[in-house]
Design a protein around this nucleic acid. Structure first.
Lengths: 112, 112
DNA sequence: TGCTTAATTAGCCAATCGGTTTATTATCGC
DNA sequence: GCGATAATAAACCGATTGGCTAATTAAGCA
């Protein structure tokens, strides 16, 4: 994987297990076994996912005796949101839909 | 990679070359050789990146003689933007910063 | 028909990913 | 110190990724 922060962020988000973990953590801190509970997956697998999220700085982790509580660090999502937001006008102003409509007409697939 | 649309979107965005391609296409349609020009990379490599973007439905492609013009299909970014937006309050309301501050105090690393 | 240009396919390769099982480390409580 | 619990590390595996070069396909043009 590329080494820049934005690539690490998007890469971390590209796995549904990791997105689910972030969703869980939006409810508050959780330990590794807590996090692993809903998944049909070994503990080391979850531990690896958490390491990916930690390297991407999407979570931070503490220490409480033998527990390693994970906490959401959502601020890392801001640059990803900003990047995508630069394209928002391309789908919100309906330029897209209009252009697709016109293109399909050219192709003779007009349906209305 | 996981097979769901959102994972494909984030995965496609996790490569800086592919993000740059999308940025180019936000200026308008372009052929494969056009797209490849600024990159220090072989044409087949660019072709593969375009296939990834196409499978992720972030671009669509036409046919004009031997050219295959690629066009941005930004609407696919909407679900990704929506997903991230669910977390916006976690960094915009400064709960994050506050919590991190308090945590660092607990650890005795207070600096002010 | 052949030549040129545009692009993809095929085949290869090293590195990474996402999972496993087993072994190890860290900490608590008795 | 010892046993139990929490978590990570190590070693392995098959599939995927991202790049390359060489070969092939597709289309225009003379």
């Amino acid at each position: 994987m590329a080494t820049d922060q934005l690539s690490r962020t998007f890469s971390a988000l590209s796995d549904p297990t990791r997105r689910a973990i972030l969703t869980m953590l939006s409810q508050g801190e959780a330990t590794v076994t807590d996090i692993a509970a809903p998944f049909d997956m070994s503990l080391p697998a979850i531990s690896k996912h958490l390491q990916v999220l930690e390297k991407a700085e999407l979570i931070s982790r503490g220490r409480d005796a033998q527990w390693r509580p994970a906490r959401l660090n959502a601020v890392t999502l801001a640059p990803a949101a900003d990047w995508i937001d630069d394209y928002r006008r391309f789908w919100e102003t309906s330029f897209d839909a209009l252009e697709q409509h016109l293109t399909s007409e050219e192709k003779g697939t007009t349906r209305d």
